[in-house]
Design a binder for these strands. Structure first.
Lengths: 111, 111
DNA sequence: TTTATAGTTCGACTGTATTGGAACAATAGA
DNA sequence: TCTATTGTTCCAATACAGTCGAACTATAAA
């Protein structure tokens, strides 16, 4: 992996809000044993039904974290731009998943 | 690893100069096959003699990279503060090494 | 003791990140 | 068609990061 590319990825993860969003997408927002702890459990909501993909991701993030929609949109863009996540809009449904191969590259980079 | 701690580490590596410095320390400044490429070879200088530890680290970094000493000092502090490197002054000799266990923790964190 | 070298600290400047509000576009549902 | 919901884009405000020069301390060498 290119050094500059790597910097981009580190930058994307070097913000607490974005790192939370990243793990929220990666682990499923309602998971209790995710690395980000209990901060992501949404009260009175059902869990994301599809393993590896979080649906209604945008809405859920907005609900969980006390951030405006424009800010959340910005953070999603940063994560996408770094290649860490992929998002797809399907009607009103916003589906996200983590690009695990990028994470693996990062882990190799640190080897 | 704590989320906030992790953010600190990502922040420290989310800057191209610091990432270069980090690899310079990690791989030995004169190594030709390091991840950071040829940017770190110092012309007409002998290589760091001790594996895993780079001696005269500060001076070498100042020579390699076009940065003032105060800036380099600042970057070293950031890397130390994140726990990524350990530095020790021994007279005029400044010895640095990478804390591999922190790197391993990061790799686990990304698992 | 004087001088040179090494690294730190402080203050200032500049550029970039983070954030929210407002206006907007697209879709879904009534 | 009208309305509510979802996400984007633009703009502005504030905070933070990266950088340097100057003044400083500490050590080594002459």
């Amino acid at each position: 992996m290119e050094l500059s590319n790597c910097v981009k990825i580190f930058k994307a993860l070097a913000n607490e809000q974005r790192l939370k969003i990243f793990f929220m997408i990666r682990k499923g927002c309602c998971s209790t044993e995710d690395k980000a702890g209990s901060a992501f459990r949404i009260k009175n909501k059902t869990c994301c039904p599809v393993a590896g993909v979080i649906e209604k991701a945008f809405t859920k993030v907005c609900e969980c974290m006390n951030l405006s929609r424009s800010t959340v949109s910005h953070h999603f863009k940063e994560l996408q731009n770094a290649g860490l996540i992929s998002c797809q809009r399907d009607g009103q449904m916003y589906r996200c998943k983590v690009n695990e191969e990028v994470i693996n590259s990062m882990r190799d980079f640190l080897k």
